[in-house]
Design a protein around this nucleic acid. Structure first.
Length: 420
RNA sequence: GCGGGUGUAGCUCAGGUGGUUAGAGCACCAGGUUGUGGCCCUGGGGGUCGUGGGUUCAAGUCCCAUCACUCGCCCCA
């Protein structure tokens, strides 16, 4: 037999797995919808040039790319934001702002697989275009908190760490580092905790940064609070006011318990320009659960006019690991309302009519499709989580009735089909 | 790319130092119970023992190679 396993780093979703996935995605959708975000989608396959950013990002170094039959360089999308930017630019002036959109795309990367690193995952994306101020970030954070609360998680389980790239930018500016170095430096800084210090310093030097500058960056990132930052930084940076403003909005939204300032958050993507944030579980261990930020100048990198924007991505894997660990995953079992079974082939017609009528009422109805014994029927009903078994049997049917058994209570009665 | 671990039924796994027709539990199917589920009892189907080669009278077992999965490292940086 041929190899039946899914390709390395990819997953099959059997009905058992799909029940969990649908449950999770349902919560993604509910949380976004509560805040009036609208769902969109785009092709999994995009032109490779959509992701060429040359900032040393991990994500663009792991493109799942190839040449199609027309000789085009294409790639399975590693993230949704560039596709979203493409959609926004297509709308042009017809786009009414602010645009609040969400999606649950499957995203791909090609790399060696290890624990927790697959080649494919689903990533809930929530974005706001057209709002320059931190009211937009506050909205995103509130969506996240709403989602976490729906899952039964609290601020004792999770925290959202927030910073702002303008912090780093201000420091670089004051040290005379040219603007075009900013994005690559951010990418390197994001790796500070994951890689040996020397490797990073080497790369920083390759970008033309002196030891003094590197020290200053690290010094800034190690500050633990906004007040500390305020005292240490010589000039009055507007970024501190911006961060304070965001935390104030967090308080007014009643989500302050979930939020903390953390200067070491910078994110590994090149396009962020302002606020950046990541959510972590407080019981250590797991990787970031989600992350996002403001990217006000993404559209111009595609040749369009910029629109202020911010958003986050939220993977489907880490959150499930966390929920498992916290014992917060519900049991997922199949459920149907009625199992209808004709007792003999000449009663199949009436059985089909009764099933149809019940379905028109909105019930989930399974029909026994073969000539099966009663024992099989009840076993089947049990396995599929049926609430009722409706038997179309000769004696009852001759009196215009069907036999109904409620499997939850064990009650049985004869009813006219109209009374079902 | 390097190293470790694991590959035996649909699933989870047993199978000292080689020795008849390769086992268990779960799952599946059937019967017990010809019109009533979960429990129980009985029976049944299902295996080229990852693949290829070698040693041997004899290989699931030993040797070599290879592939797959998995963990760690390297790479990405």
């Amino acid at each position: 037999m041929m190899n039946l396993a899914p390709l390395r780093g990819t997953r099959d979703f059997f009905p058992d797995d799909m029940r969990l996935r649908n449950w999770l995605f349902g919560h993604f959708r509910d949380a976004a919808r509560k805040f009036a975000f609208e769902e969109y989608d785009a092709p999994i396959l995009e032109l490779e040039e959509l992701y060429i950013r040359k900032a040393g990002e991990e994500i663009t170094g792991q493109l799942y790319n190839f040449e199609d039959k027309g000789g085009r360089r294409v790639t399975l999308r590693p993230e949704m934001t560039p596709s979203l930017a493409r959609l926004i630019l297509q709308k042009g002036g017809a786009l009414t702002l602010p645009a609040k959109w969400f999606s649950i795309p499957q995203c791909w990367r090609y790399e060696r697989t290890t624990r927790g690193r697959r080649r494919e995952h689903y990533q809930w994306n929530v974005d706001i275009f057209g709002v320059p101020g931190v009211t937009a970030e506050a909205e995103l954070l509130a969506v996240l908190v709403t989602f976490f609360r729906q899952l039964g998680l609290g601020p004792q389980d999770l925290e959202i760490r927030i910073s702002n790239r303008k912090l780093l930018q201000s420091v670089l500016d004051s040290l005379g580092v040219p603007d075009e170095k900013f994005a690559p430096v951010c990418v390197l800084v994001d790796k500070l905790e994951k890689l040996p210090r020397e490797a990073i310093e080497q790369d920083m030097q390759a970008l033309g940064l002196t030891d003094t500058i590197v020290d200053r960056i690290i010094e800034t990132l190690s500050l633990k609070s906004l007040d500390e930052l305020d005292n240490v930084l010589s000039e009055k940076y507007e970024v501190i006011d911006e961060l304070r403003g965001l935390f104030r909005l967090g308080e007014q939204y009643g989500i302050a318990d979930w939020l903390s300032f953390d200067a070491s958050i910078v994110r590994g993507l090149a396009y962020y320009t302002g606020t950046v944030f990541e959510a972590f579980d407080r019981g250590v261990n797991l990787r970031a659960i989600c992350g996002g930020g403001r990217y006000d100048r993404l559209l111009s990198t595609f040749g369009g006019n910029d629109i202020p924007a911010c958003g986050f991505g939220f993977g489907d894997v880490v959150i499930v690991e966390l929920l498992k660990e916290k014992n917060r995953l519900p049991e997922f079992t199949p459920e149907i309302d009625d199992l209808v079974c004709p007792f003999s082939e000449d009663l199949r017609g009436p059985a089909m009519q009764i099933a149809s009528r019940l379905r028109e009422q909105g019930r989930v109805v399974d029909l026994v499709l073969e000539d099966k014994k009663i024992k099989w029927i009840f076993k089947h009903a049990d396995r599929n989580g049926a609430s009722r078994v409706i038997l179309i049997a000769p004696d009852e049917w001759s009196r215009g009735e069907v036999r109904v058994k409620n499997l939850k209570t064990g009650e049985e009665s004869n009813l006219s089909p109209d009374a079902l």
